[in-house]
Design a protein around this nucleic acid. Sequence first.
RNA 1: GCUCACGUAGCUCAGGAGGUAGAGCACUUCCUUGGUAAGGAAGAGGUCACCGGUUCAAAUCCGGUCGUGAGCUCCA
Length: 644
Amino acid sequence: MADIQIAKKGEASQTFPEGITAGEAVKALCSNKERKQTLAVRVGEDLLDLSASLMADAEFELITADSSEGLDILRHSSSHIMAQAILEIFGADGIKVAIGPSTADGFYYDFDRQEPFSPEDFEAIEKKVKEIAAAALPFEREVMPRSKAIEYFTERGEVYKVELLNEIEDDTVSLYRQGDFVDLCRGPHLPHSGWVRAFKMIRLAGAYWRGDEKNPMLQRMYGTAFFDPKALKKYLHQLEEAKKRDHRKLGKELELFTINDQVGPGLILWQPKGALARKLIEDYWKEEHYRNSYELLYTPHIAKRDLWATSGHLDFYAEDMFSSMDVDDVSYQLKPMNCPFHIGIYKTKKRSYREFPIRWCELGTVYRYERTGALQGLMRVRGFTQDDAHIFCLPEQLEDEIFNIIDLNLHVLKTFGFTEYNIYLSTRPDKFVGSEENWAKATEALKRALEKKGLDYEVDPGEGVFYGPKIDIKIKDVLGRSWQCSTIQVDFNLPERFQMSYTGEDGKDHQPIMIHRALMGSLERFFGILIEHYAGAFPLWMAPVQAKILNITDAQLDYTESAFKELRQAGVRIEKDTRNEKLNYKIREAQLAKIPYMLIIGDKEVEEQTVTVRLRDGKNLPPMSVSDFAEMIHAESQGSISPQ
RNA sequence: GCUCACGUAGCUCAGGAGGUAGAGCACUUCCUUGGUAAGGAAGAGGUCACCGGUUCAAAUCCGGUCGUGAGCUCCA
């Protein structure tokens, strides 16, 4: 057997016999302390577990429990352990196993079983997993010819594994065994099951085999695992926090919006409080656009179906559109997008290059058919309002326009409290319209704009829409969840389809560059995200009710009434609660309604012509006059929506 | 659309092994006029999502429809 040279990265190598396991090499080359934290090693691009044999010279890095790769390995192994537990509890006879990968938050494993699992089974599964963890069963890797593995799984009736094996191109495959559970798996895995110290079943749901709805529906069991029980506790706490912030729950409690069976699923009814918040958002949006040299448009909700044939929507998106309706024997269609209307306005006259860039924006309500199963609160609806805009410009203006859009975009997001985001640049897909040259130029312009703004971004190769490259911005909310709202897309398709043109400097006709962009995406969805981001406690500038006056007894009714009128006059969004209830009761209600300020009026305040101000967090400000309060509110609201 | 679960008063939920329903909050009225998160009493409110079937009898069992949730799929 030949000798090989192995080294810990950055350190001197030692000679070992070929076939030595990674674990033995780590033991020889690393300190005890390091070894104890090591789950696997990275050699080049590959992650190997400690039981893997090293067959050539290698330099390795340690993958320890405190790394994200380590957590991934833990969860992947936990899915195997969960599968083992489930087979032990329910018997392997009636169950076929499918796949069990790790995910961003944990892992899942898919099972094919006649009888449904139920959440009541979770406790027993968790208990069994604990037993398996306590037994510290080693994960044993076995490499065998593919044909032998096929034979092995065929014998056991594991048809899904056989299907996977038949598609693997390598001659040899690896199997992992812990206890009696054997699974086809690339690995790497934990050294032994004892590493699983914090395990929790999360939920179960149906999932098609390989995500294809023609395939059988399997039962997907979701779980999560952590090295540290405290981290699990924190994660579960976060799930609860997300539940508390659920915009559907808060939307109901705060009377922001409702969805009504009789009206139809996926259609939002904005209640007064929600409608007012929306108005504030829209007002801000419009002012910001006006300041940035956009012009506002309004367009109708329906149009002749032919328009959508010209635009290409019927070819590409017919399935996502509502069915047509006949009006005087002509077919009409609810709009799924605003762009053809804006193009209609563009075409009202002959355009000159001197007019460019043309920047048109609209809060345009569109209707898209979403499958019933996809609908969710405000996040996924059938009728929604896009904060849409279309920019028509010259090729040489593209980069500047993109730059300005990004600038405005990030400013608007910041005003709403989103300062963390990931940016993605999607490039030309396999199927595309327009010339390769134009694609390259446009993509380059997007890139340069991002770089000029000093922004980090990731390239999503081939992920562009067929009509042009795009930039997507995903914001992070206060719980660290990502939401894609903003998108900036270059379009080579519509100008062509609608034969748009302008007269250039040379007196000839040219085709304009068209940019679509949305900052919030859908107002409905964005509002849902805001509700969850702020847990319903909106910042002052967009709070539908900024303050509520609470009188202590009927004796202060007159003063309460005059303070109320004065504040309304002063433009403060004020309400009053003059019911015959105790102060405690009124405070509780205002607090639950997440109103930023409570103004308390008792005999003392009447006498001194002041109000006592209570904040949402329970603290009090010193008594102040009504006009001082109005001024304070205005100053504070203005501060948070400073213009760009 | 698919799988599973769920649908009882405005809201949050209990109950119901088949004999036409209950709590708390909210609402109305009365008492109480009380300084920083629920004062008291009374009253009103539901053909138990809808449609069909089984049954002497269905809110309860069965089937379908609609809606909601979790996920799959989809997301121009």
